[in-house]
Amino acid sequence: MYSERILEIFKNPTNAGGLQGSQGIGKYIDEATGDYYKIYLKLDETETIIDAHFKTMGSVGAIVASSALCSELVNLTIEDAKEVNEETIVKVTGEYPEDKKQTLTYAINALKSAIEEYYIQKEKAEKNGETLFAKAKPQKEKVEKKTTKKTVETNTEENNNEKQVSKAKANFDAMFEAWND
């Protein structure tokens, strides 16, 4: 059973969604359950993580581990991020249910993959005489706007179905009343 604290994070996860301009994107898939973790890291010239986001398909434990992990990564250097482990996440979330503890490790695996990816991208950029850090600024607002746009798109799609839905509801009302009679 999950604690209230874990459920609270699950209800309102922070750092959810993709992150434009991230220099390190890591993923981890647990073949047994099909859980899929993706971590996005955005760094500045000092190799400090200025933003971290996640996309995760998995259990409550998987989503909360990803969210708590990302919130702890911000303001760490990439070197410091290498030291982040399961205990770092548990400090935010509180104790995990025994059968969900593996999700902490999987989220950390996705982070490790993101750090590796960052170094690969960095090496590539340096070989080409380029830099990964184009006027780095927190992109949170931009992302939030994007999320809003997505919601609007969804709403538009829903509106297109509104007539059909209303018609079905009316039909149901009639059926239900008939049944009650």
């Binding site: 993706k38 996640f54 995760t56 997505k150």
Partner: peptide, 8 residues
């Protein structure tokens, strides 16, 4: 909401 944060 869940699909918006799903990597799949």
């Amino acid at each position: 909401k869940l699909r918006a944060i799903s990597p799949v």
